[in-house]
């Protein structure tokens, strides 16, 4: 067993874990943050996407021990003081989800992407979310949601 401490959304979570514990299971079962989903066994779907030191990665394809001492953001960390972040607001306003299973991962990928590219084209948005699969929406409204968030963030920066 290894002792790990992982900072998730600003709070430290410590536990004794086996090295084989996947990070996504630490997040869901040790930290009880169940917004991060598991959608496949093959590293294909991106439902488990979290931000690891600001970068979107698949938390089902890392071990919890590897995140010892690192800072993660999960979907629970996006809203601040009860106020939705621009990306969350975009998904709400533009109907960027149906069942919602892919949504946490989709939003975290979008948050990191808009930080890097605040003025994206539609093609760039589609490229950025190409590692996150959605079985419901057909992506059109997800792209609209990300565009909405980009506009919103521009406005609030002015």
């Amino acid at each position: 067993m290894e002792k790990v401490t992982i900072n998730i959304n600003g709070a430290d979570y410590s536990a004794e874990v086996e090295p084989r514990l996947l990070l996504v299971h630490f997040i869901r079962e040790n930290a009880n943050l169940t917004g991060t989903h598991v959608g496949c066994d093959t590293t294909s779907c991106g439902a488990c996407t979290i931000l690891l030191d600001g970068k979107p990665v698949k938390s089902c394809t890392m071990f919890a021990v590897q995140a010892n001492g690192k800072h993660l953001t999960t979907v629970e960390g996006l809203a601040q003081n009860g106020k939705l972040s621009p990306v969350q607001e975009g998904f709400h306003e533009k109907h960027g989800l149906q069942c919602g299973f892919c949504t946490p991962g989709m939003m975290l990928t979008s948050v990191a992407f808009l930080k890097k590219n605040p003025n994206p084209t539609e093609g760039e948005i589609r490229w950025a979310i190409s590692g996150n699969l959605c079985r419901c929406t057909g992506y059109v409204n997800i792209v609209e949601a990300v565009k909405y968030a980009a506009e919103k963030m521009k406005e609030s920066n002015q």
């Binding site: 690891l52 979107p56 698949k58 394809t61 490229w127 950025a128 590692g131 996150n132």
Partner: peptide
């Protein structure tokens, strides 16, 4: 190679 998430690792 792969997708943007995989490429971050």
């Amino acid at each position: 190679v792969a997708d943007p998430l995989v490429r971050n690792r």
